[in-house]
Design a protein around this nucleic acid. Structure first.
Lengths: 234, 234
DNA sequence: CGGCTGATTGAAATGCATCAAACAAAGTGG
DNA sequence: CCACTTTGTTTGATGCATTTCAATCAGCCG
């Protein structure tokens, strides 16, 4: 476990939105039953097929969650960041993990045991409802992504993914996307070939929609990108 | 509401697996608070954007759940049958419906008010857990579908969809798929053009994987179809 | 019978994947 | 600290699966 570089047990989860509904009592036991660890970029938190002992709450850093297709190709399902929880789906279903999760930006995660989760669900109906709403929100996004991936061209999809990343990870003062992905990771999100991503990105750059410097992506024409993405909402 | 042809309030929901965890007391109030109605093929149960007052449990019949893409094309998310519940996702999130659901085989549905659902979640933690597991199961399938749709060829996908339909709706003694879809509906499930479905189906027929008689699809070579679908599991 | 929806086939156009090669960057070990 | 290996990026050329457009046909209903 050389990739877990420090053990930090003085984290308090009470501030995270996910645990808003807990009583003081519950907060106490949650904070004593959790285990926080820091993870280096590249570390795998859990693998497809492994048994899970709990779920994780992300204190900081970014995690990519992906499935391995039948041809071994990775399909990125989502990126999780501060405040998000991961691994809860398979845990609740009491199945082996059906995704792999990998740190893509140095992270601090809290592990919360299954028993603690079950206890909260049993004792605190507000928590259950909050939990239900989280799963429902993720299901909604999954359904929307199915629709997009099934109907849109790679060009539209890439533009949309850039916009989604912007929503989730924001831009800095120079409009640079605050998540750094390889071209291959972008390809594995969109479900296309790395070369296609490269070509489309440089087309977007030529069209003055974005600017590129290595892995840094600046979004310089939001409206234009939205148009390319063929999005009606927002 | 001319498409609701009868009102049947003598249905007892206690037998359905979804309500297994309810106490006798809860069964009673559930059965008194629900409203059952019969729907003709073609009827829309609820539309994208509409406000929901409750969710539905399917007593019999088949319902297709779809989203409308930005170009107006319908993307079928799933087919629901006896014992399944629909509309619960948007209801729990307290949002307008983000899918449309349409009867594709004459159906009998029970409407269960939001209040009743909330009450069950509040009072019965076993029910909450069961509910959570249902949403998690649907999320799992959605994630798997994302991976397939993003990575597989239309040919592989169609084979897989036929197999999924077989799992969910079975075959009769003559190996005929017990769900009848138009070519367009198949196309809207796979996310492709109707013409592609037609061509691929007749290729499958030529390869003696399936047999076609109008909308009836017979699966005569399960192993072969599985191979075409490029599936490792099962 | 005409009108409508769904199914089918053909031909042409194209978006995207694949393969190949070269290059850049970054980390490793002597 | 430099050669080496590895990993990621880029560009070009080619092929193919799938879309699109067009036309015809079959079945069904009022």
């Amino acid at each position: 476990m050389k990739n877990i570089i420090e053990s930090t047990d003085n984290i308090n989860l009470s501030g995270f939105r996910f645990f808003k509904t807990l009583t003081e009592e519950e907060h106490k036991s949650l904070n004593s039953e959790k285990t926080c660890s820091s993870y280096k970029k590249g570390t795998i938190v859990y693998k497809e097929g492994s048994r899970l002992t709990g779920f994780y709450c992300i204190i900081r850093g970014i995690v990519k969650i992906y499935k391995t297709g039948n041809d071994g190709k990775e399909q990125i399902i989502r990126f999780a960041k501060k405040g998000d929880i991961i691994a809860y789906r398979s845990l609740l279903s009491q199945e082996s993990a059906c995704t792999t999760s990998k740190i893509i930006e140095d992270a601090l995660l809290c592990h919360i045991p299954y028993k603690t989760l079950l206890n909260l669900i049993e004792k605190n109906s507000s928590f259950s409802l909050a939990m239900l709403r989280i799963v429902c929100a993720e299901l909604k996004e999954a359904n929307e992504y199915i629709t997009d991936i099934a109907q849109k061209s790679v060009r539209e999809l890439l533009a949309e993914v850039l916009l989604l990343l912007k929503e989730n990870f924001d831009l800095d003062a120079e409009k640079t996307l605050q998540i750094s992905l390889t071209r291959e990771e972008l390809a594995n999100t969109v479900g296309t070939a790395t070369e296609s991503i490269i070509r489309l990105l440089s087309e977007f750059k030529q069209d003055n929609l974005i600017d590129l410097q290595g892995r840094k992506i600046k979004i310089i024409n939001l409206a234009g990108l939205t148009k390319v993405a063929n999005i009606t909402k927002y």
